[in-house]
């Protein structure tokens, strides 16, 4: 699903968060959004999925939405956003309940749980699961509606380094069999270098596109270039990250 961000700006009261973002995202592409904290990358993701109304500009898409998608724009959240009173299975089924019959629901949920290695945890509650398993539930819940655009908002930031490593492997494995367009917000440069086809580097407040870095190597064969790519991305954001770090927060 080709997406077009057209001169999108956003303000929170007097604070300009995004300034005139223009970006075209191709069908089936994985785009990572990186930048120093406060660059508006999560704001842009909120606008892309229709959770936030931009102060100016618009997001459009070319062509019709795929008919088999129940929720074309689907999020994976940093804090998982699971319902603690529902089991894994019921959390994954949540978005299907009001539009899919019980038989198809069971089938879809079972498939999504199998894909995310959660089949044995179907009747567990979120509090019984590790952070990594919780985010797998978040991913299963997103896959089950067959999204056209998957919007991932720092999906691995709440996880420890080893779990993060495992989930990156899972994401690559899942994405090799599922065709969606993906926008991936992160502040982790390794995630961007490993998962994305293009990395959009945003400048700090107000967020503007500073550079777009294309990574040509296929995701399955990147081990050799990842360190260089990380260095390159770090060079692009280092100074601004340092400035952001020294900034006094307006509470």
């Amino acid at each position: 699903m080709p997406l077009h961000v057209e001169r999108v700006s956003h303000r929170y009261g007097p604070v300009a968060a995004l300034d005139s973002i223009d970006l075209d995202i191709a069908d089936g592409e994985t785009v990572a959004l990186i930048g120093p904290s406060g660059c508006g990358k999560s704001t842009l993701l909120g606008i892309l999925g229709g959770l936030l109304r931009p102060s100016a500009g618009r997001v459009t898409l070319s062509g019709a939405l795929p008919a088999d998608s129940l929720n074309p724009f689907t999020y994976v959240f940093q804090d998982f956003a699971l319902l603690p009173w529902r089991t894994v299975e019921a959390n994954v089924a949540l978005a299907l309940e009001h539009r899919v019959n019980a038989a198809e629901r069971r089938e879809r949920v079972a498939a999504a749980l199998a894909l995310t290695s959660l089949a044995d945890f179907a009747s567990a509650y979120p509090k019984q699961l590790s952070g990594g398993m919780r985010q797998r539930v978040g991913i299963a819940r997103a896959l089950v509606v067959r999204p056209a655009v998957l919007l991932l908002d720092e999906p691995l930031s709440a996880l420890d380094a080893q779990t993060r490593e495992l989930l990156m492997e899972d994401l690559l494995r899942i994405w090799s069999r599922e065709k969606s367009t993906r926008v991936y917000v992160t502040h982790n440069l390794e995630e961007a270098a490993r998962l994305a086809d293009r990395v959009v580097v945003l400048s700090r407040r107000p967020g503007r596109i500073r550079e777009i870095v294309r990574i040509d190597a296929p995701v399955s064969d990147r081990a050799a270039i990842i360190p260089d790519m990380q260095r390159k991305l770090w060079a692009l954001i280092r100074d601004e990250a340092a400035t952001a770090d020294r900034e006094v927060q307006d509470v």
Partner: peptide, 23 residues
């Protein structure tokens, strides 16, 4: 964030009340 999650998955308002807000 749970309510935003419900909205982002296209849950109708009555489902957001019955399945997220009330529990």
């Amino acid at each position: 964030n749970l309510i935003r999650m419900g909205q982002s998955f296209g849950l109708p308002a009555r489902d957001i009340v019955a399945k997220i807000l009330l529990p």
